[in-house]
Design a binder for these strands. Sequence first.
DNA 1: AATGAATGAGCATTCATTCAT
DNA 2: CATGAATGAATGCTCATTCAT
Lengths: 210, 210, 210, 210
Amino acid sequence: MSQLAANSAATAETKRLRPARTNATRQKLFDAAMHLIGERGASGVTVDEIAAAAGVSKGTVYYNFGSKSDLVAQLVRHGVDLMLEQLAEAKAAEDPIESTRNMIDQAIQFLSEYPSFARLWVSENWKIPSEWHEVFTELRGKLLAVIGEALDGIALKYPVNPKIARGSLETAIFGASFVVGLDVQTYHPERTRAQSVDAIMTFVHGYVLP
Amino acid sequence: MSQLAANSAATAETKRLRPARTNATRQKLFDAAMHLIGERGASGVTVDEIAAAAGVSKGTVYYNFGSKSDLVAQLVRHGVDLMLEQLAEAKAAEDPIESTRNMIDQAIQFLSEYPSFARLWVSENWKIPSEWHEVFTELRGKLLAVIGEALDGIALKYPVNPKIARGSLETAIFGASFVVGLDVQTYHPERTRAQSVDAIMTFVHGYVLP
Amino acid sequence: MSQLAANSAATAETKRLRPARTNATRQKLFDAAMHLIGERGASGVTVDEIAAAAGVSKGTVYYNFGSKSDLVAQLVRHGVDLMLEQLAEAKAAEDPIESTRNMIDQAIQFLSEYPSFARLWVSENWKIPSEWHEVFTELRGKLLAVIGEALDGIALKYPVNPKIARGSLETAIFGASFVVGLDVQTYHPERTRAQSVDAIMTFVHGYVLP
Amino acid sequence: MSQLAANSAATAETKRLRPARTNATRQKLFDAAMHLIGERGASGVTVDEIAAAAGVSKGTVYYNFGSKSDLVAQLVRHGVDLMLEQLAEAKAAEDPIESTRNMIDQAIQFLSEYPSFARLWVSENWKIPSEWHEVFTELRGKLLAVIGEALDGIALKYPVNPKIARGSLETAIFGASFVVGLDVQTYHPERTRAQSVDAIMTFVHGYVLP
DNA sequence: AATGAATGAGCATTCATTCAT
DNA sequence: CATGAATGAATGCTCATTCAT
């Protein structure tokens, strides 16, 4: 079953994010591609497989997405949009630290709902040359900016360690979140979301001076 | 130039890790493969390219390594051994926090010397099925154990936050290190190693109670 | 712009040659197809491109012409009719040599106006099997007949070299005309029509005894 | 059977023209490709067919020629080299007109021996954009130069018509030769080579003033 | 009369692997 | 030890054609 469709809570948002002319076909291909590529990586999946999994012909993939590369790019973009939207909703709290915690919690939840997206991200992000370098650069910037805003909010209200290079800190939190999120699914399904969030929040608490 | 050979400080250790019957041909192939695969990923490099870069014929690759997959597996195992060895050397400090910092510093340095290894890790580790799953799982356990020991050392000497679930914390540090290390190379080559280490070390200040 | 429509002098004739029920859509497709196929050859143009150039949907091409092959066949037939008609008009001169010159001049002009037709001819005529063999064979016969009549007229009024095998001579003139006409467009756009005609007319001076 | 190999008289020359490292494989592919492409055009023949006709696997085509496009380019180049060599041998006569006649005779004979080459030439030469435009331009220049030299020889010894634009005249002779050569095979196998040559020589006689 | 989504057979090309020398 | 010619299964992509609307 489609991972995207599986998340009933996100259905309303998902719909908004999709292009106006959402065909059943495009959606089926999207879901099938996200699932397969998330598991085996973009280069480990053939267009034939995606088409078969979506129950359409190979030509249909090209009719709808132009190329395998474009399909992946749209997949990444869609995932990030969805993640950003969920993060935006999460940060509405009084205290900035609380707000940041909510955000990380939401991120971990997102990664558990869309493990394929997380795998796609980590497996394609740092390749050289990456076919989707521009897409990743842009989307990486957006995600880091969201983390950065949360840290800004904290720095406004609390004293923070000025020695910590911002930028690197965002990246550390970003990386910790992705890896913790993936590892929970692959190696430690028994761990609770709260445990993951607490571990990642350690970085935040270390940023704030006592 | 070979990334392995580039690290003169590690030369002695490196030699020990290599098969006794290391001939020039095997070594040339090893270096060429590490370099190319580090840049473009295992599936992004052809056996022809590796052979050409090593200045030998394609048949020689098969004569020496049996298959492309075996070549990569040997590459990964070599990286694993080397990283563990370097981390072991790094933790020899009086203060456990200082020791942990040394370890992280060493890890970041290792990732910058063997970007191939780090990229291979993130792109293959969570795949289903992963071609080199065993070797990755083994390394993961060993690395998390090393981080765990460092945390144990800290917990013995300092009061730490008991709410933090150990296990998740190791994973968070592990993930932060890999992602920060990779991001520096791909997106921020201007950042210093100290910046990266400081950012990752933030977790200590969050873990240790004030 | 349409090559067919471009020739204002031929407009009246052209209209006559077109199917009575010429609607705008068919005409747009006809013009677009002639233009594109003239430049890149029948197999080098896709139905999508023709439809796009005509500003209609792909289905419309099939609705109007049944198949790409049929569209090309109609294009060729139209060219045949037009060329024969123009040659017929040209030979109305007193002197048979003058009449022949007019004909060749008209042929060269036709080839420059319908390069599509000439290119289609040379690229398809001698293929085994040729998709449009019948229509080409028919045209070939008619064209050689026209040249033959011109030679008959010359032979009636002037002494000619009896050693020259008629039949081969027509073919030589025919070939010279097509190749000179095509070469002007592809390699020597600076050459005048008069130059081309003079070169081809050389055969007359070689045919007619001094 | 191979057209190239079929000409026992040309075997000696053929051998000389081939690259030093002439494999049986390359030669088989060359022959098969020339035959098939000559009949159906470059785009009408698949690499599978060429490989099958040569009795090798498809990969072997790419191992030896790099791409279908390169194979065709080498085919054209080889054919022209062969033709030029035969023409060079033919023009060794006292009288320049006699020499020219020998050359045209040789050309017609060449075209009858290698009809595939002639078809390949006419079907690919004038396409826009031609994949092999540079190759054709270069080789076209060489062939026209040979005709031009013959005409130069005539102009030195005989009075010639100064009104005739040289360049166009070469093209006319060139085109007449190819088309007469092809038409004999396709439509008039009963015609003798002398008839063809006489017809083409009409252009030459028309060039010389009485 | 027209559309455009969908199809699927077909094609050029790649590449890990084999093997005779 | 090493080579490099040969292989063939796999793959991304094209495009003429169909058909429900």
